[in-house]
Amino acid sequence: MRVYLTAVRLSLRRYLAYRSSAAAGAFTNTVFGCIRAFVLMALWKQKPEIGGWDLADAVTYAFLTQGLLAPMGVFMTSTELGPRIRTGDVAVDLYRPVDFQTWWLSLDLGRALGGGLLRTVPPVLFGALLFPVRLPSSPLRWTEFAVCCALGYLISFGLRYLASLAAFWTMDERGMSSILVALGMFCSGLIIPLSVVPGALGTVLLHTPWAGIMQMPINVLLGTQSGGVGYALAFGTFWAVLLLAAGRMLTDVARHKVVVQGG
């Protein structure tokens, strides 16, 4: 366990070192949060309530999604494992006396914590100061939100880890990863809240793993999650366990059946 905690600490330290880049990212996220908030405000002014959300819920959603972008890795095409498989450097990683999947999870967790510390608070704080947002005061609600975010992060890592492993067979994971990013942008609720997508499409999207990355944690924070917190936790746990188990199984297959690039 100590080696994984050290990996998290060193990875976090590496990401915290680039403060100017983080400040630029936070500024960009805040600007896009404002743009998306104005778009949603125009939409909600035409219809004061959509899908059980009022204007304050929609604006809160706009800034929370921007704040969760970095820690959840929605725009990340894969983990750092993908390029190492492509170059053959993964051979060194396979010889490390650690669990392969847990090692990469630890490194990615350090990145997520760094992104959360430097790029999550500014957009949300700016939105709360200048826009009609609805942030709960209940510590319990925030705790539930944090747990759902942790499960959402595991889902995100599970998807990106599987995309990275594709490089063992395709020799380049970037095509698969680009498809994953495109799906993630829409299916996670980043472009438009899944709660307001009508009909069968909305139902399908709410049952994909991407829904647990951002949409459900925000629903829990706003108190609008259908089925309550229990459903959101069960949903997130199911997809996190399934994807991590699939990644572990595929790792074992790759370790025994695939030749690393370069021989």
Results as ranks from 00 to 15, higher is better:
Ser11His: 00
Pro193Ala: 13
Asp172Val: 04
Leu194His: 12
Val196Phe: 09
Met72Ile: 00
Phe63Tyr: 13
Leu154Pro: 00
Leu12Gly: 01
Phe145Leu: 01
Val90Thr: 05
Ala146Gln: 00
Phe75Lys: 09
Met185Pro: 01
Arg36Gly: 09
Ala37Thr: 09
Leu201Pro: 04
Val98Ile: 07
Ile179Phe: 07
Arg36Trp: 14
Gly73Tyr: 03
Leu159Val: 10
Ala91Gln: 11
Ser164Tyr: 04
Ala24His: 07
Ala23Asp: 13
Leu180Ser: 01
Phe126Trp: 12
Pro217Tyr: 02
Arg13Trp: 06
Met185Asn: 13
Thr208Gln: 07
Pro123Phe: 12
Ala22Asn: 12
His207Ile: 04
Leu206Lys: 15
Val74Gly: 00
Asp57Ala: 15
Arg160Met: 05
Ser156Ile: 01
Leu69Gly: 01
Leu105Cys: 05
Gln66Met: 09
Gly82Lys: 07
Ala24Met: 13
Met249Lys: 11
Met176Val: 15
Ala254His: 05
Cys34Pro: 00
Leu244Asp: 03
Pro217Leu: 01
Ser178Leu: 10
Val258Glu: 05
Cys149Lys: 00
Val39Trp: 08
Phe157Trp: 08
Val39His: 04
Ser188Arg: 06
Ile191Ser: 12
Val74Thr: 02
Ala167Val: 01
Ser164Gly: 07
Pro209Tyr: 08
Ile85Asp: 05
Tyr95Asn: 12
Val133Asn: 10
Ile213Leu: 05
Ala211Ile: 03
Phe126Gly: 09
Leu107Glu: 13
Arg111Ile: 01
Phe100Gly: 11
Ser178Cys: 02
Ala240Trp: 01
Pro71Leu: 04
Leu206Met: 13
Glu80Tyr: 15
Val196Tyr: 10
Pro122Val: 07
Ile218His: 07
Val197His: 09
Asp54Leu: 09
Lys45Arg: 15
Gly223Ala: 14
Leu222Phe: 11
Asp57Gly: 11
Gly230Asp: 02
Pro198Ile: 14
Trp44Phe: 14
Pro48Gly: 12
Phe235Val: 00
Tyr4Ile: 05
Arg111His: 07
Val124Ile: 15
Val121Trp: 12
Phe126Pro: 06
Gly223Trp: 13
Ala166Ile: 04
Val3Thr: 14
Pro123Val: 13
Val258Gln: 10
Trp103Phe: 14
Leu243Asn: 09
Arg141Pro: 01
Arg13Ser: 14
Val8Cys: 02
Leu43Pro: 01
Ala56Met: 10
Leu94Ala: 14
Met171Pro: 08
Gln66Lys: 07
Glu80Asp: 15
Ser195Trp: 07
Arg160Phe: 08
Ala240Ile: 00
Gly262Phe: 03
Val197Leu: 06
Gly51Asn: 10
Arg141Leu: 11
Thr79Cys: 06
Gly73Ile: 04
Leu105Ile: 03
